[in-house]
């Protein structure tokens, strides 16, 4: 671990990383066998405007490294920063159970004084790992807002240009704003992902399994009516995505309804054909129940997925996600 803080010049940071690996390698010399394995499958850039100066983002990165080793870069904002942009480098290491060798990933923390994070893109451009995907996870909610300042938006776009895939969490955003932002990036040829879509996996997976049932197989086109109950005044991103996903292929008629229930977002989904009904409902804070007219009833545990779990799932999708992209397009149509 290195606590040395220096101005965020790419050359200095890369030299810092070099020294870091050299120091980790010293241990190998003493032990006379390989003790450290350097792992990197991508560059993961996380920009955040949270008040903890990037602490939570760093923590999440360290948890993600086990499944998705990466050069992690946290870009945070702090009024306590000594320079406009400053950096430090460290290694995230862990020892897999039963193994003698540590696996280490490098992490760079860049801290900006308020009003300076927007200038980080040229530094980041010099720090991406060669020939591997660059994932940009934007936790900077200020820059994602529709009324973000031109400087914040410019800073966001400059970093987005470096990335092969952009991940945002549109929870709490107006659906129209979230969809517009994602479609804009998609139009620019970027791979996009939304953690609100990732949260739907626990809804989508059981629903998809219903159609494995022999009685319903090949009957999806007959489901012409879809009703989604949600807790917000207007359907949020999750409701729109789910509607887009379920109604997309055959353009089922969609109805949204406001309801009260357990926790935020979607409470109940009802999907109908002339001969069958599927209903999926939150029946307690930690449970959803699925009924189908084939006589099936099953309860599933339901828990709010942690950000680490959502990111782990999202980072596993390295390329184009056809289901999400189709749902996004359909969500836009539904919004209109």
């Amino acid at each position: 671990m290195s606590a040395i803080i220096f101005p965020a010049q790419p050359e200095q940071i890369l030299k810092g990383l070099g020294k870091l690996w050299t120091s980790l390698g010293e241990e190998e010399k003493h032990q006379g066998r390989p003790t450290v394995l350097r792992a990197c499958a991508m560059t993961l850039i996380v920009a955040t405007d949270e008040a903890d100066a990037g602490f939570a983002a760093s923590q999440t990165i360290s948890e993600l490294m086990h499944e998705h080793p990466a050069r992690g870069i946290v870009l945070a904002v702090s009024p306590d920063a000594e320079n406009d942009l400053q950096a430090r480098v460290l290694a995230q290491c862990w020892k897999p159970f039963g193994k003698a060798q540590q696996i280490c990933c490098e992490q760079i923390e860049i801290t900006a004084k308020p009003g300076n994070w927007q200038n980080a893109a040229p530094t980041l451009a010099g720090l991406t790992a060669a020939d591997l995907p660059v994932i940009f996870w934007c936790r900077h909610q200020g820059a994602l807002k529709k009324d973000a300042s031109a400087a914040d938006r410019g800073g966001l776009e400059a970093i987005a240009k470096l990335a092969t895939k952009l991940i945002v969490d549109t929870r709490g955003m107006q659906a129209a704003d979230g969809i517009a932002l994602l479609l804009k990036w998609k139009g620019e040829g970027k791979l996009v992902a939304d953690l609100e879509w990732t949260r739907l996996t626990q809804w989508r997976e059981p629903l998809a399994h219903i159609f494995d049932n022999a009685a319903l197989e090949n009957s999806l086109s007959g489901f012409h009516s879809l009703e989604i109950e949600h807790t917000e005044d207007k359907p949020g991103m999750q409701a729109l995505y789910l509607a887009g996903w379920l109604s997309g292929p055959y353009h089922a008629e969609v109805t949204f309804r406001k309801a009260t229930g357990y926790g935020p977002d979607i409470q109940r989904v009802s999907f109908r054909s002339d001969t069958a009904v599927i209903e999926f409902e939150r029946t307690s804070a930690e449970c959803v129940t699925l009924w189908s007219s084939t006589g099936r009833e099953r309860k599933y545990s339901f828990a709010e997925a942690s950000i680490t779990a959502l990111m782990t799932e999202e980072l596993a999708v390295a390329g184009y996600d056809p289901a999400f992209n189709a749902a996004l397009e359909r969500a836009r149509e539904l919004l209109e």
């Binding site: 995907p133 092969t164 791979l191 390295a318 390329g319 184009y320 056809p322």
Partner: peptide
């Protein structure tokens, strides 16, 4: 191809540097 649609670099995966 579904996984590799994300740009030319992934479409031509083999690179010797």
């Amino acid at each position: 191809s579904q996984e590799t649609k994300g740009g030319l670099r992934e479409a031509r995966p083999n690179l010797l540097v």
